[in-house]
Amino acid sequence: MQIHRKLSVFVCMAAGFFLIFSQLADSKTNDFEKLRRESANIKTLQADFIQKKSMKILSKPLISEGRFYYAAPDSFRWEYLKPLRSVVMAYKNSTRRFMYSDGKMVEDKMGGAQAMKIVLGEIAGWMNGRFDQNPSFTAAIHEGAVTRITLTPVGKSMGGMIEKIEITLSQKAAAVKSVKIIEDANSFTQINFQNVEINKTIDPLVFQDVK
């Protein structure tokens, strides 16, 4: 049960990242099937991100920065550069998680990598545009000045952890804006993406070498 809840947390966090990128091809569409077809065009993707964590105990948001890489079908690197350095890498069915300690990156011994491996199964679905077929969430698209996708957890498995996830896309194609993960009325995480590059060659070592 504990592992399931732990995985759910990872799934929620990863969902925000990957769902947004699966929508890049056409931000104007409100048709899930069309999005599913067009998401197949994404072969590689890389972006910088700034994460702002807001909660009652913090007088100002806690800011983290990092970089994200993806290569189809299932390679990715999700890296936080500051304030706490950590990396999750997946390559050819192997998932590893590292954190910075004593001047070097050391591998996570707490099962975080194993959890991420299971999450990858979910991600593979999202990268194929099947974001509305995850039974853990209800997905809805709202068109307006910006396109907003709202994911609402279904059932009790996410109860008390995630209230909802809001993803905003700009009207221009490939212009990723942000992901907002709302935990409760007093706590949310806003992730803003910038310098997004699609289908640009990524060195395979990025997914294998932690340095």
Binding site: V9, C12, M13, Q51, K53, M55, I57, L62, S64, Y80, L84, S86, M99, M161, I181, E183, S187, T189, I191
Partner: peptide, 15 residues
């Protein structure tokens, strides 16, 4: 005293 534990990914684990 108030305290919180957060993951690098921003998830609040304890408050």
């Amino acid at each position: 005293v108030s305290c919180a534990i957060i993951t690098a990914e921003g998830m609040t684990l304890f408050e």
